[in-house]
């Protein structure tokens, strides 16, 4: 079976140990996690993890089963690129002189729809969100002028179809809290 890029979305309770448990599932099978990000989700007290991996569909199904088996995982999903709207975000730190001296840079910024986050005497910071290819293009274009620092985030994604997680959670009740927590 052919390998594909899959976006894995995992809804979890907040727990410090969970990152270890989830990454171990990939590590055991020698699967490289290309990116990972974690944040709150649309639901109070529920966290959402987004991972990107290159695997076959047979593999991803087994992996999802093993992720869902973890006690604090509420639900895990996998989707192809066609099924998701996704983006990455990058920051470029560049010498300020260039912004004023090189006309071409101004054009590049304009055409790329990148945003200037901050400018001071020494440097300015550009932020670009979008597809990997767009960010890579901007990187190639800016490189000849000298990039002081570059960083790109992991993928974040939402799905085109509905995530039935809210209904699922509606049917589950959070356990009675003990006094201490």
């Amino acid at each position: 079976m052919e390998k594909k890029t899959y976006t894995v979305s995992i809804y979890t309770e907040n727990n410090i140990g969970l990152l270890n448990r989830i990454s171990a599932i990939f590590q055991r099978r020698h699967i490289n996690v290309e990116s990972l990000s974690a944040s709150e989700s649309e639901i109070d007290d529920v966290f959402r993890w987004t991972l990107v991996v290159q695997v076959t569909e047979a593999q991803i199904k087994k992996i999802i089963g093993q992720i869902e088996r973890q006690i604090e995982v509420i639900k895990a999903y996998y989707h192809t690129d066609e099924e998701t709207i996704f983006t990455e975000s990058a920051l470029f730190k560049i010498k300020s002189d260039l912004l004023f001296e090189e006309r071409q840079i101004q054009n590049i910024i304009k055409e790329s729809h990148a945003r200037i986050v901050t400018v001071n005497k020494q440097f300015f910071v550009l932020e670009k969100s979008g597809m990997r290819a767009e960010i890579e293009l901007l990187h190639r274009e800016l490189k000849p002028f000298g990039i002081m620092q570059f960083v790109r985030s992991g993928r974040i994604a939402v799905t085109k179809s509905e995530m039935p997680i809210s209904q699922l959670l509606g049917s589950l009740t959070k356990e009675e809290e003990y006094a201490f927590s």
Partner: peptide, 9 residues
């Protein structure tokens, strides 16, 4: 109190 339920499990 014994545990009888965990939301994510």
């Amino acid at each position: 109190q014994p545990c009888t339920h965990i939301r994510s499990y």
